[in-house]
């Protein structure tokens, strides 16, 4: 059995757990605990270690989705989770400009870990306060070839679209590598 891994990362409360939960064929295995920091009391619990979802492709192939913990104090986990990843998705809460700087930091950190393709998912695009994806491209200083995709993390079709676009990017990178 072969297993491939994709990492879903982003700032605290960007929607990573919901993203994985929308598409995983198993209940998302997440190690959560009550939040202690006042600044992080947006939700009752938060991801401490990681979220873990699975999509079975066949008897011989399975895709694992790993969500990273959002808070800085768990940064040490990022490097571990990024090892051997096929690609990664950076989730951004489009309605929270206060998290954009952190999103940029997360993105740059993961970019430095591995030369794997990635896409940015501009989450919560169904909400009125959402900033436009192209505005986020400028703010996050994304290179033109990096895709930024509108996303609603609790909508399965939207999540599928993000993962498919990431896979298309991976194919493009393979083409480039073969041509070189």
């Amino acid at each position: 059995m072969q297993a491939v891994k994709m990492v879903i990362t982003g700032p605290f409360s960007a929607g990573k757990t919901q993203f994985i939960g929308s598409i995983s064929e198993i209940d998302v295995v997440s190690t959560e605990r009550k939040i202690s920091s006042t600044a992080e009391q947006i939700k009752d619990t938060t991801t401490v270690a990681m979220d873990f979802g699975r999509i079975t492709v066949g008897d011989d192939l399975v895709l694992y989705l790993f969500g990273t913990p959002g808070q800085r104090r768990f940064d040490f986990m990022w490097d571990i989770l990024s090892q051997g990843m096929l690609g990664f998705v950076v989730m951004v809460d489009s309605t929270k400009p206060e998290t954009f700087r952190e999103a940029k930091r997360v993105l740059e950190t993961f970019e430095s870990y591995a030369a794997t393709p990635y896409v940015v998912a501009a989450n919560k695009q169904d909400l009125e306060d959402a900033w436009e994806p192209e505005d986020l491209r400028i703010i996050l200083r994304l290179r033109p070839e990096v895709k930024i995709l509108p996303c609603v993390a609790n909508d399965k079709e939207s999540v599928k679209n993000v993962l498919l676009e990431l896979l298309y990017s991976i194919l493009e990178e393979l083409d480039k590598a073969e041509a070189a």
Partner: peptide
């Protein structure tokens, strides 16, 4: 250069 898609075992 782009890494090979990492394919691991279960």
């Amino acid at each position: 250069q782009v890494q090979a898609p990492p394919v691991g075992r279960q």
